[in-house]
């Protein structure tokens, strides 16, 4: 019986549900994707009320203590600045940081996905490499930026590489968890219809792993955007970026501008979250 696929050889043909807890890797971020979107009118209004409460409380405290604007940005002025001064310079910074982030995420996540798909086929390789990936996840990649500047000069690449190194392992660790969910009965089903290894990969393994892959992207891209901004604060490219603006405005004591820039970064983070939340809802919602 030479043609029997290795992945089905001598496996226990049982069909029990696998315990969900065992499926998660060392870090379980799945709670992130399962955050309920606020929907009812009550929820939305309470949400807005809380925001308004914090907003005006902060404003009140700062007014009451006569904190000067160069020490802490006042909410109202920050929003004013954000609305009025969202100029070409901010747009430029946003586009620089955005491209560093997108390029880094694309490179890092692709590498992470491919590695996860390959490694999960080889348990030995996975066992040997997994600890290093964990180390990469927990190491602040920001520290690399000055080094990479020395090596690669003042372009975007040092930051792109840093973002890739920060987001890639995060994607990989979650994707690995996803690819490890080998549902033997589903693979056997595909095999029984004559599916090739490649078809099984695309039509069974990927869909099974997709919910975890989305989680990986979500967490990886949040790591990525923070790393991009942080890297610019440490050693920006000659193009600048939001991180460089932060350092610049802080040194000037222009706190409303500083606050407005932070607001941009925060909005960017939330947008990324929403994008992946929607992707997860569309493509991975079967796993409720």
């Amino acid at each position: 019986m030479s043609q029997v696929p290795t992945e089905l050889r001598d496996e226990i043909p049982t069909f029990e549900e696998r315990p969900v807890a065992a499926e998660h890797g060392p870090i379980d971020w799945s709670a992130l994707t399962h955050v309920q979107g606020a929907r009812s009118a009550l929820e939305v209004s309470v949400l807005i009320a809380i925001f308004a409460g914090i907003f005006f409380l902060l404003q009140g405290i700062l007014d009451w203590t006569h904190t000067p604007t160069y020490v802490f940005p006042k909410p109202i002025e920050t929003v004013k600045t954000f609305v009025n001064d969202f100029t070409t310079s901010e747009l430029h910074s946003l586009s620089v940081t955005g491209s560093e982030f997108l390029a880094g995420l694309a490179i890092g996540s692709t590498a992470g996905l491919v590695l996860a798909a390959l490694l999960t086929q080889k348990p030995f390789a996975e066992k040997v490499i997994a600890p290093y990936v964990l180390v990469m996840v927990t190491t602040p990649m920001l520290a690399l930026v000055p080094l990479l500047r020395l090596l690669l000069g003042f372009g975007l690449w040092p930051i792109i590489i840093t973002v890739a190194l920060a987001s890639g392992p995060m994607v990989m660790i979650n994707a690995t968890t996803g690819f490890r969910r080998t549902d033997l009965a589903k693979i056997a089903l595909a095999r029984s219809y004559g599916a090739s290894t490649l078809q099984i990969f695309w039509k069974i393994r990927i869909p099974l792993a997709l919910p975890m892959i989305v989680v990986g992207y979500m967490v990886g891209s949040i790591f990525g955007i923070l790393t991009a901004v942080g890297s610019e604060m440490v050693a920006a490219s000659n193009q600048g970026g939001l991180g460089k603006d932060l350092v610049y405005y802080a040194s000037l004591g222009d706190m409303p501008q500083f606050g407005a820039t932070i607001l941009i970064v925060a909005i960017l983070g939330v947008l990324i979250y929403i994008v992946f939340y929607l992707i997860g809802k569309r493509w991975a919602s079967w796993e409720a």
Partner: peptide, 13 residues
Amino acid sequence: TTLLWAMSGLHAL
């Protein structure tokens, strides 16, 4: 199941 999987060609005897 072992027998049926063998009949299905899903694993070897």
